[in-house]
Design a protein around this nucleic acid. Structure first.
Length: 424
RNA sequence: GGAGGUGUCGCCUAGCCCGGUUUAUGGCGCCCGCCUGCUAAGCGGGUUGAGGGUAAUCCCCUCUCGCGGGUUCAAAUCCCGCCACCUCCGCCA
């Protein structure tokens, strides 16, 4: 949610941000008109209410005929006050409903345009040349079968398309990755968390996932609960309606949680394997800080993501996502895309967004500073999303003899195993 | 799932039975000042948040006692619904 005062003071800034996203600048003017109506409704109500309160005090003291006369006046006033209050509440709800549709103001640094208008910031490492090594790389589905690490057929049998079982060494690999990721995060100052994966509408709405992304969210109508697509949701809502001690900022949390995504609208895409699935587990970084500090924190989150992929010896590139591809809450987003040999492409493994005070405004999260209470900034970043990380690891580290090399930092978490071996 | 209890401005707390001088009391903490060899103590003042009038850190007004309704001229206070927590019972990994 954007500060109404910002919109009033600099509407052109907001219109421009909308254009960069390829979204409607007229929405800004709709909001301003609704705000105008709201303010005049408030003024009308408050004037009547003040009069009512003043007369009410006289009633308390008045006697006899004076009292009867006053009561006649106040009774009439009461119906007027009630009506004005209803009008005012409706006007406020109007503003709220249009204001909530407005996404965060895309950063001027974010490239304008849509999904394909990203800017590549850098490459780290380089893809292996399997030809030169004299063998054809297998994809993760085949590797997963040979290692008996991934069972896709039975995933589909039990739960349907885009589900899978991690089995044997595959299950151990996920646990090892989670363990390593959490330890790295803790070393970087993050508090480890295991949050609930089911949340109330407020948390979903507050993080911006019930807007354009609503179709991708699982909902349990009997209980009016949502399955989270990322632990960003319970981590952001964690401090909702709180005033955080300024000296406690930045607060950094790293959560491990399952993530559920309907993948609506991605029907033909990535149907093979476990690259795009309805459920996966993830270690997510989340920071509460000041808006001023958020830009530097965003760079730090990106750096931790890069360090992680580098540690796993995965070749990757970093892109600066275009404004039109930002989530509702974000002003800027960086993705780390790892090289997937059998796809011959870089694919998103991690993503970090700066939401400035957009989510904090919706979730009412503030901090007290010298110049008063202000909304904090929230940022999120993937540290490790299991399914995709496993895809990248298997494919990039496979060897001619059919084994998969385990990156050294991960070995202690796999009982010292240096390779994952095919099961005969 | 059932019964009972609790929910007040950072924390604790008074007020609720019996609606109106409540501008929600007091303490702790915090901030400013005074006093003071230093520290502590003491003294005085300030301290919920949001919104509107305003360009405004002055001032005025409205809202805010878990949330939402209702009754009333008037609701922290009375009534209804909901939520959370606590105690007990039931069920359960």
């Amino acid at each position: 949610m954007i500060d109404l005062r910002v919109l009033r003071d600099a509407p052109e800034l907001a219109r421009e941000a909308q254009r960069r996203r390829g979204a409607s600048p007229e929405l800004v003017d709709q909001i301003l008109a609704a705000d105008e109506a709201r303010r005049s409704a408030i003024a009308a109500f408050e004037e009547l209410r003040a009069e009512q309160k003043a007369l009410g005090k006289h009633v308390a003291r008045a006697q006899g005929e004076d009292r009867q006369e006053l009561l006649r006046r106040t009774r009439e006033l009461a119906t007027q006050v009630k009506r004005a209050e209803t009008t005012q509440a409706a006007a406020a709800a109007d503003v709220n409903s249009v204001l909530r549709q407005l996404p965060n103001l895309a950063s001027p640094q974010a490239p304008a345009g849509g999904e394909d208008d990203y800017v590549v910031l850098e490459h780290v490492g380089s893809p292996r040349n399997f030809n030169a090594e004299g063998f054809e790389p297998l994809d993760h589905v085949e590797l997963g079968k040979r290692l008996q690490a991934i069972d896709i057929e039975r995933g589909a049998k039990v739960s349907g398309a885009r589900f899978y079982y991690l089995t044997g060494v595959g299950a151990l690999l996920e646990l090892a990755l989670i363990q390593l990721a959490i330890e790295r995060a803790q070393a970087a100052g993050f508090t480890p968390m295991i949050p609930p994966a089911l949340v109330k509408p407020r948390a979903m709405e507050g993080t911006g996932f019930l807007g354009q992304a609503a179709a991708d969210v699982y909902h349990l109508p009997d209980d009016d609960l949502y399955l989270v697509g990322t632990s960003e949701v319970p981590l952001a809502a964690y401090h909702s309606d709180e005033i955080l001690d300024a000296s406690s900022l930045p607060r950094r949390y790293a959560a491990v949680s399952p993530c559920y995504r309907r993948e609506a609208g991605s029907y033909g895409k990535d149907t093979r394997g476990i690259f795009r699935v309805h459920w996966f587990d993830k270690v997510e970084m989340f920071t509460y800080t000041t808006v001023e500090e958020s830009y530097a924190e965003h760079e730090r989150l990106l750096q931790w993501e890069k360090d992680w992929l580098t540690m796993l010896e995965l070749p990757f590139r970093v892109i600066d996502t275009a404004a039109g591809d930002l989530g509702l809450s974000a002003v800027r987003k960086f993705d780390c895309e790892a090289w997937i040999p059998t796809q011959g492409k870089y694919r998103e493994l991690t993503s970090t967004s700066n939401c400035t005070d957009f989510q904090a405004r919706r979730l009412n999260i503030r901090s007290r500073f010298a110049d008063g209470a202000k909304h904090v900034a929230t940022l999120n970043g993937t540290l490790m999303a299991t399914a995709r990380t496993i895809v990248a690891l298997l494919e990039n580290h496979q060897q001619a003899d059919g084994t998969v090399a385990v990156p050294e930092p991960l070995q202690p978490y796999l009982h010292g195993r240096k390779t994952l071996d095919p099961v005969e």
